[in-house]
Simulated scan of single mutants.
Amino acid sequence: MENFSNETIDTKQLPRFEEVQLTALHPKYSRVVVLNSSIFILLLIIGLASLLYFDSENISNRFAMILGIATVIISMGILFFSILGFKKKAYAFRNHDVIYRSGIIATNTMVVPYNRVQHVALHEGFISRFFGLATVEIFTAGGSSSDVEIPGIAKEEAENIKQLLMGKIQKQL
């Protein structure tokens, strides 16, 4: 029987993921973000305009003006935070894990060891496909949805990443 050992780890000596040089998303992905946000805003405006048009007798001019101003402010906020969110997203693939950082107000950093990866998929949205971009979806054990989605990667590079991850999964079997 092996001797049990439970030594204390000096956490100051552990490698720091914060020091890893992360790769920013493809610059064309900012266009995808802006277009997606613009489509959402356009649908919002069409919905509000329909409401004002079909129920104009019950809505005062003052309320309609306030609603219009609020819509403009909300639309500008959506575009601003979408672009800011794009700039905060980055990723890195290392020998033993993948790192993905996102978040606007609070920064979220996910580190997924390859030995936890069960499945890898590529997703191309309509607008992303137009720009030649894809999303790498990484699934780990125990989840029905992807644990990490890295958008805004050139399709050829995304396919290479998928092959790399699939190779790492095969080595574990």
Rank of each mutant, 00 (worst) to 15 (best):
F63N: 10
F63Q: 14
M65G: 04
M65I: 14
I69H: 13
A70Q: 02
A70W: 10
A70E: 13
I73Q: 03
I74F: 11
I74P: 05
S75W: 02
M76A: 15
M76T: 15
M76V: 15
L79K: 09
L79H: 01
L79A: 09
F81G: 04
S82R: 07
S82K: 07
I83K: 03
I83C: 01
I83E: 04
I83R: 04
L84G: 02
F86E: 00
K88W: 00
K88T: 14
K88V: 09
A92Q: 07
R94H: 08
N95P: 03
D97C: 08
V98Q: 02
V98N: 11
I99L: 10
I99T: 06
Y100C: 03
I104E: 06
I104D: 00
I105F: 15
I105C: 08
T107N: 12
N108P: 03
T109I: 10
T109R: 07
V112H: 06
Y114H: 09
N115C: 01
V117E: 03
V117N: 02
Q118L: 11
H119A: 09
H119Q: 12
H119V: 04
V120F: 03
A121I: 01
A121G: 07
A121E: 14
L122E: 02
E124Y: 02
G125Q: 10
G125P: 09
G125F: 04
F126T: 05
I127E: 08
S128N: 08
R129L: 00
F130Y: 15
L133F: 05
L133G: 09
A134P: 06
E137R: 14
E137M: 12
E137A: 11
E137S: 13
I138Q: 00
I138A: 04
I138L: 01
F139P: 07
F139T: 09
T140N: 07
A141L: 10
A141K: 07
A141R: 02
G142V: 02
G142A: 06
G143D: 06
S146G: 04
S146W: 02
D147N: 08
E149D: 14
E149W: 08
I150E: 10
P151T: 13
G152H: 01
I153H: 04
A154K: 02
E157I: 00
A158S: 08
I161N: 02
K162S: 03
Q163T: 10
L165W: 03
G167M: 02
I169A: 00
K171Q: 15
